[in-house]
Amino acid sequence: MERGRSMAAAALIGVAVMAAVDEIVFHQLLGWHHFFDRSTPAVGLLSDGLLHTAELLGLVAGFVLWADLRRRGTLSAAHAWAGLLLGAGGFQLFDGLINHKVFRLHQIRYVPDLLLYDLAWNGAALALLAAGAVLAARARRRTGAAGRDGTETGR
């Protein structure tokens, strides 16, 4: 089993899935987010462009790494699930704190009282991260001993 790789591949997918949910649900379907908010500073725009592209590439890289692990029979499903949730939660938290607050790319919704939206957004992120951490600990307990004695294959 390649535990670290299983988790990393799934985390890439998790980040990309969360980014896609954000783009599709909040930008396109609900129309809550603005495509571009005129108060965005240049550095925010640059970081947004880089991250947005990295997410797209991460989606493809995550899937192809996952497919490769499966093909070679070295995918650890427990670690992959943990990675998926950690990636999704990590992105959500990054989006909520850095993109929305530090870079002020756009806000969740353009309403007078934003606090509730911010709390819900970042609370959901923390919940995802916590669930991912629990799964990671369980995966580690379950396969922790096995990985050490040279069952690592592949590379």
Partner: peptide, 10 residues
């Protein structure tokens, strides 16, 4: 991709 996305948003 980043250069394209930044230009598009600007």
């Amino acid at each position: 991709g980043a250069a394209h996305a930044v230009l598009a948003k600007s």
